[in-house]
Amino acid sequence: MGCCELLLLHTTIKMGSRALLLLRPTTSTKDLHFKSRFLSEALIVEKRRVRSYSVRSTIHPPDLPRLAETARISLTPDEVEEFAPKIQQVVDWFGQLQAVDLQSIQPAIRADTKGENLRDDVPETFENRDAMIAAVPSYEEPFIKVPKVLNKE
């Protein structure tokens, strides 16, 4: 479950109330001819975000089985029961942020706005490649071996 929480925390720390919006299921969208999946998601998020200024109180409880599936971890029913209230707690905790009045606040795209950190396009060879390759669980020169996959998802 660590992964989910981590994700949730990252999200919430960086984005405040928006993270909560992301927790809602996104499957209710109408089948429109969008040019790209994420663009349509972007629009949906934006719309909700705007809407959330007025409709503040609706936070859907996290769907544990779905969260576990998106993080590719299997949970036993016992674990679901154990984790559900904990996740709910975190959500409620951040839910308090919903009370903040954002009407007159411009959304920030980043928490830290200070300075760029850019690199010149100059190549450098990483010297300890052998150690990295040695740590690959399944390697057969020159490839990393993985279970056979043909289709995404």
């Binding site: 992301l22 999946r37 998601e41 706005t113 760029e116 950190n117 289709n151």
Partner: peptide, 23 residues
């Protein structure tokens, strides 16, 4: 056919915390 879509894929986008904004 390669794969049928079952609803929209959920990529759970969030801002990359390890990179500053691009100005």
């Amino acid at each position: 056919t390669m794969r049928k879509k079952e609803g929209l894929a959920d990529y759970r986008y969030f801002p990359e915390p390890d990179l500053p904004e691009v100005i």
